[in-house]
């Protein structure tokens, strides 16, 4: 991986979840930089930056339940955008509710992963996300 590896955008409001996720990526020696947004509003605020030429993320890890603007709304706006709709969005949430899964996919989520409570498994998830979305997955130019 080069130093220009595109970042991973992590949208997560819970500070401990955020910390643990970052640590999980660190433990797996992830090469892609991780950019964080603490709620939906912050995530959406990145769109003008991308427009301005900042590198777009290779994948967005999106929590659903967040204050102010929730994950589903972020997903809706992203997928409605002509360019950013191509950024893969992986919903990473505690909710295994069928309704949430349905809604997320209906809005165009590329994947839906329930955060494992067990940290060992969480590490495995982080590894697989990185491997799949940042290494294996091929995006359009």
């Amino acid at each position: 991986m080069t130093a220009f590896a595109p970042p991973i955008l992590l949208v997560e409001d819970n500070p401990m979840d955020l910390d643990l996720t970052l640590r999980a990526f660190q433990r797996r020696h992830l090469t892609n930089p991780v950019v964080t947004a603490r709620d939906g509003e912050e995530a959406l605020a990145m769109m003008p930056l991308w427009e301005a030429g900042e590198p777009m993320p290779a994948v967005i890890l999106l929590d659903l339940k967040m204050p102010r603007v929730d994950g589903l709304e972020v997903l809706r706006q992203l997928k409605a955008h002509p360019r950013f709709c191509k950024i893969p969005v992986v919903v990473l949430t505690s909710s295994g509710e069928d309704g949430d899964i349905q809604k997320a996919y209906a809005l165009g989520a590329n994947s839906y992963i329930i955060k494992p409570v067990n940290f060992e498994r969480f590490l495995a998830v982080a590894e697989q996300i990185e491997l799949y979305w940042c290494v294996l997955n091929q995006l359009p130019e």
């Binding site: 401990m16 640590r23 409570v117 940290f119």
Partner: peptide, 19 residues
């Protein structure tokens, strides 16, 4: 929904940090 989301988050923290 809250139970599923909010109750699990602190558990994950406890588990994660204890690990």
């Amino acid at each position: 929904y809250s139970v599923s989301h909010d109750l699990k988050a602190p558990l994950r923290s406890i588990d994660g940090y204890s690990q």
